[in-house]
Design a protein around this nucleic acid. Structure first.
Lengths: 105, 105
DNA sequence: CAAGTATATGTCAGATATGACATGCGAACA
DNA sequence: TGTTCGCATGTCATATCTGACATATACTTG
């Protein structure tokens, strides 16, 4: 958030912080969630170029609804399913690693 | 496997191949297993430098036996637990990404 | 030798993630 | 307008993963 915006909000009495702070997440918990969200986004990008959710679901022997949840970052979706889906789009371990690494950190 | 060794074994009547071939794993299944094994190895390396299994277990609110299984690549351990453990050793998403990427692929 | 420490392995009840299915919504188009 | 297509969301029985615990092995140290 820009400093100016933060100051404007704080002047109005708002507490300003990250979602992680609001939810009292530890850095490790935040990092895990960011990893999953990064994979969700990349999965959608890759999948959209190649096939429908139903087609991807068939490849990983899952269902369209589960792929939709994977792409929307639903909490019921495991890291494992995200990675299996990425692999099924043709992603290499290297590409998956890059998605997880994100913009360093 | 070296070509010479393969030929020696085949001369004796052995069928020679990778574990993946033996188990009829698809490339995607193999890749997922390799990712997990790479994380197991890295986890052990990092953890040994810093703490005991019991100490790591406490950090991730798990148990020593589960950490042991994570490090030995037991099939009952999820990708998620492996990543949580890596984070608890202080690994960054970048380091985790590198572990997963392995030697390209 | 016994006692302590670190790790490995098996079991199990309970928690969580799963695929399947139903259904909702919007866009394209006939 | 109705129909089809792609995606989102909710529910549910079941499969998988979980932490906890008991116990084993292997070292080290007194």
């Amino acid at each position: 958030m820009k400093k100016a915006k933060r100051e404007r909000l704080e002047a109005c009495g708002w507490k300003v912080g990250t979602v992680a702070e609001f939810l009292n997440l530890t850095p490790e918990e935040s990092a895990l969630i960011e990893i999953k969200m990064a994979l969700s986004r990349r999965l959608r990008e890759r999948r959209e170029k190649r096939m429908t959710q139903a087609q991807l679901a068939e490849k990983i022997q899952s269902s369209q609804s589960r792929v939709a949840k994977a792409e929307t970052g639903h909490s019921s979706v495991s890291l494992e399913l995200l990675v299996r889906a990425m692999l099924a789009t043709g992603a290499s371990p290297k590409e998956i690693g890059q998605a997880i690494a994100g913009n360093q950190k």
